[in-house]
Amino acid sequence: MTFTKTLALTALTVAALANINAAQARDQIRIVGSSTVYPFATAVAETFGKTTEFKTPVIESTGSGGGLKLFCAGEGDNTPDITNSSRAIKKSEVDRCAKNGVKNITEVKIGYDGIVFANSRKAKPMTITRKQLFLALAKDVPAGEGKLVANPNKTWKDVDPSLPDLKIEVLGPPPTSGTRDAFAELALEGGCKKFDWLKAMKKQDKNKYKAICHSIREDGGYVEAGENDVLIIRKLEANPKAFGIFGYSFLDQNGDKIQGNLIDGQEPTFENISSGAYPVSRSLYFYVKNAHVGKIAGIAEFIQEFTSNKAWGEEGYLADKGLIPMPMAERNKFSEEAKTQTNNIQM
């Protein structure tokens, strides 16, 4: 008895499975990409789903690199329509897209994100420069003209006598993270450039320059704390001697527990990041597959929602979530280009 019943059930399941292949046309936008853009894209998707007749888009948080890999895998129903990115698309990724037949991509810049260097409110705030950050966190630091030594600095005081006598302990994201790439590029390289001979090297040997300026120490001064920024904040709370690196939106939401430190004399505030005064900020983007617009229902409308002033404007709901809006003129330019899909990536 049981056996025949279970046999029938198996047959049914297999039949159901076979059916799916046939009925697969997609009526829902699929988005992948950066975990930094994820909180903003999801907010737009939810509003879009609740105020239009379209289904709410599905958004996967895969990281910028992972998103572009999926995005560039080809065109068609089983590839994503949009990918979010916390950095501009790389040449190698454009090539990959072209190779797989994705020839038309529109780039839309959505705003800025500041990367903060924060610690617990229980501790004293620290004023630091990018040069000091580089000396504290780089793998190798310059010792005189043209010479490098493995980073000997154990405490902040070793870096600069004006800094406190505390062990260097910085919690930050792992190498797979776009936040870490951006921090290395904006903060560390920014400090690295202050050494003239290193700056001169940029022109002669760009790869070596990058290797020096972007490498983060691995001897315990920098602790990889995973992609989870909430976890970093909890650890900072428990250990007031440590510092953490994460996106501005997490500082915005947890201002009672942590404080952002001044970098090059600038406080990480909404105003400073949007005016560009705060040195460690980056642009956020999303990329649209032009061939899918019109084929998958709702893409054009979704872009319109994302680029409307009630979403990405100064008073929009994305600003409430911690996105730093672009100035009006830039917003108009990108929203116009997004609508007409004219800002294509050169293949």
Binding site: P39, V58, V230
Partner: peptide
């Protein structure tokens, strides 16, 4: 991130432990 409640086994959806994982990461 999936807002719509799935209507069948072929609709996009998450599961409980995944929802916990996603929320644990929200700011």
């Amino acid at each position: 991130f999936i807002v719509d409640v799935p209507g069948g086994p072929t609709d996009p959806s998450t599961v409980l432990p995944v929802q916990i994982f996603l929320w644990a990461d929200a700011p």
